[in-house]
């Protein structure tokens, strides 16, 4: 699994639960290094061991932890570049949801070797969508649930999202958009703020 993904998992554990929890997870998962490195590749087993240790340390259900991880990816301020890159998907939340078909290609355009979930979007009526997502590891459903909820807030849209079972190995989600301009969304201009 790409270091970027492992690094995000580490960042989530450290920022949400504190460095002590991360230290405990490292011990439990028997890691011989301090930090994941964003630009390197790691064995998938390491990612799973890290995640499993985190749910044990936190005494939380895997689904809840994964959903929080999804929210973290969009709302944690230092990860703003990721939120911005996702906002390029569409001018409204509905347009964004429809663009998720292209998410894997979009991800590979930024980073050719990153493992992005392959998502198929089906529009059921004007406001309802069903997503089927496949990924290398189990758990992409709850991660997407958390991050897409956060994206709906980002766009200022009112949407109801829920997990919708597993179909042929694809984890499914249902999205119903009630109002695309429910609240003031977060500002998004195409130009990157100067650093």
């Amino acid at each position: 699994m790409h270091g970027m993904i492992n690094r995000a998992l580490q960042g989530f554990l450290t920022e949400t639960y504190g460095p002590d929890v991360w230290a405990e997870v490292r011990t439990l998962a028997d890691f011989r290094f301090e930090d994941f490195e964003s630009m390197l590749q790691y064995d998938d087993d390491l990612t799973m061991a890290c995640f499993k240790a985190a749910t044990e340390v936190m005494h939380q259900s895997p689904t809840a932890v994964l959903e929080d991880l999804g929210t973290f990816l969009i709302t944690h301020p230092p990860l703003d570049p990721l939120r911005r890159l996702l906002r390029f998907g569409g001018a409204s939340f509905t347009e964004f949801v429809l663009s998720l078909d292209e998410l894997a290609d979009r991800g590979r355009m930024a980073m050719p070797d990153i493992e992005m979930p392959e998502i198929t979007v089906t529009q059921e009526d004007t406001a309802s969508f069903r997503l089927r997502a496949r990924w290398k590891l189990p758990g992409i459903g709850p991660i997407l649930l958390g991050s897409l909820r956060a994206m709906a807030d980002d766009y200022g849209a009112l949407a109801i999202l829920s997990l919708d079972g597993v179909e042929d190995g694809a984890e499914c989600l249902r999205i119903v958009v009630h109002d695309t301009h429910h609240a003031e969304g977060r500002n998004f201009v195409l130009a990157e703020a100067s650093r």
């Binding site: 490195e37 964003s38 630009m39 570049p81 911005r84 890159l85 355009m109 980073m111 195409l190 990157e192």
Partner: peptide, 23 residues
């Protein structure tokens, strides 16, 4: 739009690579 996206993604990953090299 894709050009802008790539331009931004590029500078993000370049920053990460630079940090890795520095470390």
């Amino acid at each position: 739009i894709e050009l802008l996206y790539l331009h931004e993604a590029n500078s993000s990953t370049a920053r990460l690579s630079r940090h890795l090299s520095e470390r």
